[in-house]
Write a protein that binds this DNA or RNA. Structure first.
Lengths: 356, 356
DNA sequence: TATTCGTGCTTAAACGTTTAATCAGAGCAT
DNA sequence: ATGCTCTGATTAAACGTTTAAGCACGAATA
C-alpha cells in the first residue's frame, strides 16, 4: 500500500481512503489509485486490517462429528455462503464429548473468529460464547437460528405413505434423545394420520441388547403386517433396505422403505430411495446472513451504541421447508394376504407392481 | 499484555520474552509473569502476532468436492492433526471446474495461510502457489506428498478374492481418468494374478449411453459367469450390491461384492461390505508434519537462509498402507453350475453357504 | 584499577492497515 | 479585506505483538 502511495506521490492514508471509498478523495485520484493498485498487484493484508479493525473476516463452523455423512452438505453450503459474503470458514470438530465441543469453540475464539455457526451436539445448549452465534439444529430447539423444518418433512412423508394406502408402518430412528429425529417422527405420525397404526423402533435400543450392527428383525415385522418402514435417516433406511432385500422381501412390491436427508447414495441404490431433502443452501444463506447482520455495524442506526451482539443470533425465517423426493422405494402395499418373498423383478419397478 | 506489564512494573517486551522464553529473563520473573497472565486471563492476540511474524497459524484445506462422501474422513483427520500442531484449518471448496480450484487457492492465499493441503481435482497439477503445499492424491501422481497406497490396497483385495477361489471377476470403476481408481484397478489385477479372468466396467461410460443412474446390468454379468464384483469405491459397491440383491442374486452365496474406502455405510448394510480402508489419520499426520517442517524455521540450520519453501512439500514416507477389512459380502464362489437366484438366508452368512 | 563480559531488563521500531484530527487552499458571503 | 465553509488531502496515532539494539550494573579478567 505504501508502494502505491509512493508511486503516486500521495500518502498511504489517501490510498486507503481511495480504495475503501470512505474519506474524501477526488474521483480522478480514486481512479489513479485503483489503476496503480492492480498494476502493482496489490493485495491488502487481511491480517493488518484485522488487527486494526478487530474483525478477522473469518467465521467458525463447529460440527458435532465431521464424520457424519450429512456434514459435506452442511460444510459445502456454509462455505459457499460465507465465501459469497467475503468470509472464510474455519472448521472445528467437536467429536467426542461435550467438553470437546466447548474446547473447539474456545479454539475458534482464540483465533478471533467474528462469529460462528454451530450445529450442536445432542442435548447441548449453547451458552453465550462471546461472539455472535448461529445455531442450526431444529426449530423446536431453544436458541435455534435457522434449520430445516423437520417436522414438516416428516409430515410430508407421512402423507405420502398414507396416500399410497399404507395402514401399518414402522418408524425407525437411531436415538430417542435426538431433537431432530423426534421432530421427524412427530411429523411422520401427524402426516400418517390417526387411522394408520404405527410403531417406533430406536436402533440404539435394539443394539444395546443385541450388539452393534445386529439385524433389526425387519423381516419379522413385515410378516407381522407392517407394509412400510419409514426411517428417520437415509443411513437407517439403507440398513433397512438391504436387510429386507437380503431376506428376500421385495421393495417396493412387498414393503416400502423411506429415508431422510437425500444422502449421496440414496439415488444410486436399487431401488432408489424415496426420501426428503433439506435445502442446505437456503439454510446456510440464512444463517450466514443473520450472523453478518449481527457482526457488521447496522447501516444507519441512529443510536451510537453499535455494540456487536454476543449471543445467539436469529433469522426472520427460522424454518425452511423440506422437499419430498419420491423415487422407487415406495409403492402402494399389496392388497393380497401373502407377502411375496422373492423379488426377481429387474429394475425401475412401477408402483404396485407385483411379481409372484 | 501491557496490562500484565503494568501490573508487574516491567515492560511489555519483557512480558513477551518471559512468556515465549526467548530473551533473557530471570526465572523468578518468568514465574511471576506466568502467574499474572493466567490471573488476568490473558489470551495473546493471534492477529497481532500474525501481523508481526508474518505467520497466521492457519492452514488451508482445498477439496475437489466437499460433497464427496470420503471428505468427512479427510477433513476430520486433517483438522485433528492441524489442531494438535496448533494450527487452524480454513476450508475451501473447489467444486466445479479447475478455475474454481485456482480461485479457492487464491482466496486462501489472500487470507494468509501458512500452507495448504490440497487434494487435487482429477488431472490437476498443482503449480507453485506461493506457499508450502502438501498434495494428497496417489503415489503415482507427480507432486504427491503422501497418500494411501491405493495400488497396494487393490492387490490385497485381489489376493483375497483369488484365495477365495474366484476366477472371473468384474472390476467396477467410475471414471477411467482417475489416477486413484486406476491405481486400485492395477493393484486388483496384480493381486488377482494371471490365471484370473477379469474385465473392467467404467460407470461413467455406461451412463454416458444409458443415462445417469441406469442399471448396470450386473445380473447379466453374473449369469455370464462373473462370481465377484470388485468396485473401486464403496459407493459403486453399494450400487452393485443393491442391484444384484434386487435381481434376486444372493450376496455372497452366489457372487461376492467388494468396495473401497470403508465409508460409513459399509458396515451397516446387509451383507456388510468387505472393503479396504485407508489410514487417514496417518496420512493427515504425515501431510501436516511435512507442511510444518517447511513452514517453521528448521531447528538449527547453519546457513542463515531460512527461506520458507514455496512449492510442493514431501514426506519421507509418501505411501501409507491400506487395510483389508473382510466382512460378509465376500465368500467362495459356488462350485455348482446354476447360480442361485433367490436368497432368503437370514443374516451373518458364513463363507460358502448355499441356500437352494 | 581499567577492561571486558554476561545478565536482566528497557527502548524503540516494525508489521500494514484504518481513522480521527488537522491543515492548506479555494470559493463565497459579510 | 476578514471570516466561514467546503474540499481534498496529510499527519499521526492506534491495533498487540515480536525482536533487534541498547543500557546499566556487577562480576570476572587483565
Amino acid at each position: 500500500m505504501s508502494a502505491i502511495a509512493a508511486a503516486l506521490g500521495v500518502s498511504a492514508a489517501t490510498v486507503s481512503n481511495a480504495l475503501s471509498g470512505k474519506g474524501r478523495v477526488s474521483p480522478e485520484l480514486i481512479e489513479k489509485v485503483r489503476a496503480k493498485a492492480s498494476e502493482l498487484g496489490y493485495v491488502p493484508s487481511l491480517t493488518a486490517r484485522a488487527l486494526r479493525t478487530g474483525r478477522t473476516g473469518v467465521l467458525g463452523l463447529v460440527l458435532p462429528d465431521i464424520a457424519n455423512p450429512l456434514f459435506p452438505q452442511i460444510a459445502q453450503a456454509i462455505e459457499n455462503a460465507a465465501a459469497n459474503a467475503g468470509y472464510g470458514v474455519l472448521i472445528a470438530d467437536s467429536r467426542g464429548d461435550i467438553a470437546a465441543q466447548t474446547e473447539a469453540i474456545g479454539r475458534l475464539l482464540e483465533r478471533g473468529v467474528d462469529g460462528m455457526v454451530i450445529v450442536p451436539r445432542r442435548g447441548t445448549r449453547i451458552a453465550d460464547v462471546g461472539c455472535p452465534v448461529a445455531v442450526i439444529d431444529t426449530p423446536s430447539t431453544p436458541g435455534n437460528t435457522v434449520s430445516a423444518d423437520h417436522w414438516d418433512g416428516g409430515s410430508q412423508m407421512g402423507r405420502h405413505l398414507a396416500e399410497l394406502g399404507h395402514r401399518k408402518v414402522l418408524l425407525i430412528g437411531t436415538s430417542a434423545s435426538s431433537n431432530v429425529q423426534n421432530d421427524r417422527i412427530g411429523g411422520l405420525k401427524a402426516g400418517l394420520g390417526a387411522q394408520v397404526e404405527c410403531d417406533t423402533m430406536w436402533i440404539e435400543k435394539v443394539e444395546a441388547v443385541s450388539g452393534e450392527g445386529c439385524p433389526l428383525g425387519l423381516a419379522d415385522k413385515a410378516r407381522a403386517g407392517f407394509t412400510a418402514f419409514a426411517a428417520v435417516s437415509d443411513l437407517s433406511a439403507l440398513r433397512a433396505l438391504t436387510e429386507l432385500q437380503r431376506a428376500g422381501i421385495g421393495v417396493p412390491e412387498t414393503v416400502s422403505v423411506t429415508g431422510f436427508d437425500d444422502l449421496i447414495w440414496s439415488a444410486v441404490v436399487t431401488p432408489a430411495l424415496t426420501t426428503v431433502r433439506m435445502d442446505m443452501a437456503t439454510i446456510a444463506d440464512l444463517a450466514i446472513a443473520a450472523l453478518i447482520r449481527a457482526i457488521e455495524p447496522e447501516g444507519e442506526t441512529e443510536n451510537g451504541a453499535e455494540e456487536v451482539s454476543t449471543g445467539n443470533v436469529t433469522s426472520e425465517t427460522d424454518r425452511v421447508p423440506m422437499q419430498l423426493i419420491v423415487r422407487q422405494s415406495t409403492a402402494a402395499p399389496q392388497t393380497g394376504r401373502t407377502p411375496n418373498l422373492h423379488a426377481p423383478t429387474p429394475n425401475k419397478p412401477t408402483a404396485g407392481e407385483i411379481t409372484s
